[in-house]
């Protein structure tokens, strides 16, 4: 049995330790907001947080997440209050097909958590998730709208 801490809840699951975390999250726990896109950590559709860091879960063995805090898109908002990144996404209607957006939002949330005032280059470096609809213009716009200018952006 493997013990996992997902979205503030402890879980146990009978699964091989080398199973990619993505498939455990999706198929064992039914948390399907985290998506499968490529299976080789290229596209970022499977991005979630491990101890607050954005991680691509399609190549990460579940054993590597034991003892750590896993947060998925479903756990990003707390107590029914949307996370500011989700709010910004809604405010300017970022998603088109929407498939990559969980991953995009998780990447953006992790970026802003560690750097509340990212400049364009920081955004570019952190936001490497692919979007086939090309929603990149609005993604950038949404992140920029959240940049804490008081924190002294460079």
């Amino acid at each position: 049995m493997i013990k996992l801490h997902i979205n503030d809840t402890e879980h146990e699951v009978d699964i091989e330790p080398d199973t990619p975390l993505l498939w455990v999250i999706r198929d064992s726990f039914g948390l399907t907001g985290t998506k499968f896109g490529c299976g080789i950590s290229q596209c970022g559709a499977c991005t979630l947080h491990i101890d607050g860091i954005a991680v691509r879960s399609c190549t990460l063995p579940v054993s590597a997440a034991v003892g750590k805090k896993i947060t998925t898109i479903e756990g990003l908002s707390k107590h029914g209050v949307a996370h500011p990144v989700q709010e910004a996404w809604c405010k300017i209607d970022v998603p088109q097909c929407g498939y990559c957006q969980s991953g995009q939002i998780m990447s953006a949330a992790a970026l802003l958590a560690r750097n509340p005032s990212p400049n364009d280059r920081d955004i570019e470096q952190a936001m490497t998730n692919l979007c086939r609809c090309g929603s990149y213009v609005r993604i950038k716009q949404a992140i920029r709208s959240l940049v804490d200018t008081k924190a002294g952006a460079v």
Binding site: G33, T34, E74, Q86, C90, V94, P95, Q101, I105
Partner: peptide, 10 residues
């Protein structure tokens, strides 16, 4: 469809 596409429920 935006809300559902930002909270993982879509």
């Amino acid at each position: 469809d935006t809300l559902a596409k930002t909270d993982g429920t879509a």
